[in-house]
Amino acid sequence: MNTALWIGAGLLAAVALTGGFTKVFVPTAKLAEAPGGQWTGDAGDGFVKALGGLELLAAAGLILPAAVGVAPVMVPVTAVCWVLLMVGAMVTHGRRGEGRFVALNLVYLALAVFVAVGRFGPW
């Protein structure tokens, strides 16, 4: 079970790192032209950059605490925060009629729930 939780956290961290990096370092106008990024055209530049920064922190919070053994409870706490982020993403994409991105966010949400429950649980 521990291996599955590490894989789940690693996959989520990779998603968070990729999303955070693009939101922080790619211009918002360019993001708005990309598939799934059209919502950034309606959001402020500061909001998009702040969201990207939070995603970069999430990537670290899903891996580093357990890897170094310092405050490992932060892994499931970060996973719960990722669940909340995915709910917001699903609402945003749903309002825009982007069903395939809602489904993708639902997969990420389910993976985050798995990591949160598994790391809060007896394993």
Results as ranks from 00 to 15, higher is better:
residue 92 T to L: 14
residue 96 R to K: 15
residue 42 D to K: 15
residue 43 A to C: 09
residue 29 A to I: 07
residue 95 R to T: 11
residue 72 P to T: 08
residue 65 P to F: 03
residue 50 A to N: 10
residue 12 L to S: 00
residue 44 G to M: 12
residue 47 F to P: 02
residue 81 C to N: 08
residue 69 G to V: 10
residue 14 A to E: 08
residue 81 C to H: 04
residue 30 K to C: 04
residue 50 A to C: 10
residue 40 T to G: 03
residue 69 G to I: 10
residue 71 A to F: 06
residue 88 G to F: 02
residue 49 K to S: 00
residue 39 W to N: 05
residue 57 L to V: 13
residue 68 V to I: 15
residue 24 V to A: 02
residue 40 T to I: 04
residue 58 A to H: 05
residue 33 E to W: 13
residue 50 A to I: 11
residue 47 F to C: 01
residue 19 G to W: 00
residue 19 G to Y: 04
residue 20 G to Y: 01
residue 34 A to M: 15
residue 33 E to M: 11
residue 70 V to Q: 05
residue 56 L to S: 04
residue 16 A to V: 00
residue 69 G to S: 07
residue 79 A to K: 02
residue 17 L to K: 06
residue 83 V to E: 12
residue 45 D to S: 13
residue 68 V to H: 02
residue 74 M to I: 12
residue 36 G to N: 10
residue 96 R to I: 14
residue 83 V to Q: 09
residue 89 A to M: 09
residue 19 G to P: 04
residue 12 L to A: 01
residue 36 G to Y: 10
residue 45 D to V: 11
residue 35 P to A: 10
residue 33 E to S: 14
residue 60 A to W: 11
residue 47 F to D: 02
residue 31 L to K: 06
residue 58 A to Y: 03
residue 13 A to M: 03
residue 16 A to E: 00
residue 50 A to Y: 04
residue 64 L to S: 06
residue 67 A to T: 05
residue 92 T to R: 12
residue 86 M to V: 05
residue 18 T to E: 11
residue 76 P to C: 04
residue 94 G to L: 15
residue 55 E to W: 00
residue 68 V to D: 01
residue 89 A to F: 00
residue 34 A to L: 13
residue 39 W to S: 08
residue 29 A to C: 05
residue 52 G to D: 04
residue 75 V to P: 01
residue 63 I to Y: 03
residue 38 Q to H: 13
residue 81 C to A: 15
residue 57 L to E: 07
residue 36 G to M: 08
residue 87 V to P: 08
residue 40 T to A: 08
residue 61 G to C: 05
residue 76 P to L: 07
residue 53 G to M: 10
